[in-house]
Design a binder for these strands. Structure first.
Length: 479
RNA sequence: GCUCCCAUCGUCUAGCCCGGUCUAGGACACCGCCUUUUCACGGCGGUAACAGGGGUUCAAAUCCCCUUGGGAGUACCA
């Protein structure tokens, strides 16, 4: 039997990073197994579902590089793939259950239901349905109400027996009998409820393996009941751990970092986000940290899912982003970086050679495209000097002065815009011999005087990129 | 309340299934140090964890039980 997996979000908001991660795992699993990845829209909640969210979720998935094989826009054998277009199917199956005596019409009001629940809680019992409609003696009354045009919900008669979920992540999970009471499968407005249509669809779409968030583990019981009632074979399950925030709460909109759209807007690299997400709850067999998802291939093994919830923390994501940024081809990196530099910036008035060198030099210090300009300003274009206290240990003020005077002298005669690399090497060598400096004082001294900072990229590469005007400014600042 | 899940450095995790090789490995972050100049997306080093208590065993991060802590579900939401 061929492997079929699915990702089935409800279009009630933008794609959530938790959702993106589940989608990714399904995608990777399908890829590793040579299976089919189905995208299904669970839009049975009319109030909250919006078409625009379906569109945006699809877009975000594509942006992340997660492609699916069957879905609303890629019809396959088992469509339609929007639950709102499948209501007749659910209805049919629900009626069959009613006919088989496995489900019944319920006409209880919200108030009655609420009262039932309260009573049960007070008495320490699980809040199960105990209305009259589950008894066969009321079936006739129900039929009459129905015939009279009254709207009733269809409730599934939960069998009183224990169920076992053989979860690929959690192992054998046993649920006691009496854990769930009769539950609604078709609302009084005629629309199905998640636990019901999910099973019908998974069955009809021939899903063999369900990878989803741990919040659904308990739902599995209800779903197993439906499979049983309908005579279907349940798929294998893998309930992956949840993503939580630093307060160990389920990640919510309030955390401000949850929608994929946001990362797109903030110019994160999709390959970085997806790489990071993959690592939250799954580990590469070779302990690789940086990879392209399409390179994982057979290394993707669902056995490597972690059981415990993972805190979603931006720090590592930033690092991953930096790694992917540096791996970009030069021309792509350049054009992306330029999008984040002010139009009237000094940068744009420079030669291509200068631009390329500046990018080559500074790309190792940035994690985001937007980090480049600030870096440029502070390292190359700022006349200020930052002479830190700890520098005193290796570099005396005396030495600094000597270097300053020497450099002033050497640079005075030059009025090009920049010092060439050769010229710089020449000055540096003479400084070394004439002032008899070496080691740290030599390098640190020169660095501080020319760059204004006590750390930074290779001097020989850095100095030729700094406008001479700025260098002179820095030296003046020091003397 | 009831049911279920989870528990290794600050964070993500390896190891747990098949006890000894673990004085617990890696990564991010943090803190040091390293460049007389072919690879700083670098190198070297440091701080830092098996929640607690019982058992089983010659031996437990690994197996069992309890406690504690966290999470999820308990909807005519998904």
């Amino acid at each position: 039997m061929s492997v079929r997996v699915r990702f089935a979000p409800s279009p009630t908001g933008h794609l959530h990073i938790g959702g993106a991660r589940t989608a990714l795992y399904n995608y990777l699993y399908a890829k590793a197994q040579g299976g089919t990845f189905v995208f299904r829209v669970e839009d049975t909640d009319l109030e909250r579902s919006k078409k625009e969210y379906e569109v945006s979720q699809l877009e975000d998935l594509r942006w992340l590089g997660i492609d699916y094989d069957e879905g609303p826009e890629k019809p396959g054998e088992y469509g339609p793939y929007r639950q709102s277009e499948r209501t007749h199917i659910y209805e049919e199956y629900a009626k069959k259950l009613v006919d088989d005596g496995l489900a019944y019409y319920d006409f209880c009001t919200d108030e009655e239901l609420e009262a039932m629940k309260e009573r049960a809680m007070k008495e320490g019992r699980p809040p199960h349905y105990e209305g009259k409609w589950r008894n066969s003696e009321y079936f006739e009354e129900a039929a009459n109400k129905l015939a009279a045009g009254e709207k009733g919900a269809i409730r599934f008669k939960a069998p009183k027996k224990s169920y076992v979920v053989n979860d690929e992540v959690r192992g054998r999970v046993v649920f006691p009998e009496n854990m769930v009471g009769d539950f609604v499968i078709i609302r009084s407005n005629g629309l199905p409820v998640y636990n019901f249509c999910c099973v019908i669809d998974d069955m009809l779409m021939k899903i063999t393996y369900v990878i989803r968030g741990e919040e659904h583990l308990n739902n599995s019981v209800r779903q197993l009941m439906i499979y049983e009632a309908l005579g279907g074979t349940p798929p294998a399950f893998a309930h992956v751990s949840l993503l939580i925030n630093k307060d160990r709460q389920k990640l919510s909109k309030r955390d401000g970092v949850t929608s994929v759209t946001k990362y797109k807007e903030e110019s994160y690299l999709p390959e970085a986000l997806i790489n990071y997400l993959c690592l939250l709850g799954w580990s590469h067999p070779d302990e690789k940290e940086i990879f392209a998802i399409d390179d994982i291939g057979l290394a993707f093994d669902a056995k490597r899912f972690a059981k415990s919830a993972a805190i979603y923390d931006l720090e590592k994501l930033k690092w991953v982003n930096g790694m992917h940024l540096r791996a970009l081809p030069n021309d792509e990196l350049k054009s992306k970086i330029e999008e984040f530099i002010a139009k009237d910036h000094f940068y744009f008035s420079q030669s291509d050679t200068w631009k390329d060198s500046a990018i080559e030099l500074l790309k190792n210090q940035i994690e985001f495209f937007s980090d480049f300009q600030p870096r440029l300003d502070s390292d190359l274009l700022n006349g200020e000097v930052n002479r830190s206290e700890k520098l005193e240990d290796v570099l005396s003020w005396d030495t600094t002065k000597k270097i300053i005077n020497f450099l002033k002298d050497k640079l005075a005669g030059i009025d090009d815009s920049f010092i060439s690399k050769e010229k710089f090497q020449e000055i540096f060598k003479s400084l070394k011999t004439e002032l008899e400096l070496k080691g740290k004082p030599l390098f640190m001294g020169t660095r501080v005087c020319l760059t204004g900072q006590d750390h930074g990229p290779e001097l020989g590469d850095l100095v030729p990129l700094i406008p001479l005007k700025i260098i002179k400014e820095r030296i003046n600042h020091l003397s």
